[in-house]
């Protein structure tokens, strides 16, 4: 290494050489860039409203219609059960059974509650 040409001189020369480099874009590159510009933007990931997400989840508007019909039918059957439903329910359940939470049996088995 000579003192007349320390590394900093070399670096400065390299920097100057690099700064002098130019590379005019050729037509092929310009065409590539403009083709990119002409391409439509990719779809953007915007959060959709809740209703739209739900619709997509259950399979579109037809599914929504069926769901609504089933809901209305269920509510209606609850309010005013047709005779056939009432009979069927009775045949399954039989007699009415009452279960008290604080029945007398419960109290007598554990003894009278006392104050501590």
């Amino acid at each position: 290494m000579t003192m007349t040409n320390p590394p900093d001189d070399m670096l400065d020369d390299l920097f100057a050489t690099a700064r002098a480099v130019t590379l005019p874009p050729d037509d092929a590159l310009i065409a590539r860039v403009l083709a990119d510009a002409a391409r439509p933007l990719p779809p953007r990931h915007v959060k959709e409203p809740l209703l739209v997400q739900l619709r997509a989840m259950i399979g579109g508007w037809p599914a929504f219609g069926s769901l609504a019909a089933a809901t209305v039918a269920g509510v209606w059957i609850g309010i005013a059960p047709p005779p056939v439903v009432e009979d069927y329910a009775l045949s399954l359940l039989g007699d009415t059974v009452n279960i008290g939470l604080f029945s007398d049996d419960f109290l007598t088995e554990t003894g009278e509650p006392t104050d501590g």
């Binding site: 690099a18 480099v21 130019t22 590379l23 005019p24 590159l29 310009i30 860039v33 990119d36 510009a37």
Partner: peptide, 26 residues
């Protein structure tokens, strides 16, 4: 494009890579 291509070629010293970077930046 001329300026960003020049910036890329100075850092990369490779024409193909510099052109790819310039296109990507645009």
């Amino acid at each position: 494009l001329p300026r960003i291509l020049a910036q890329a070629i100075r850092m990369l010293a490779n024409k193909t890579e510099a052109e790819d970077v310039a296109q990507d930046a645009m």
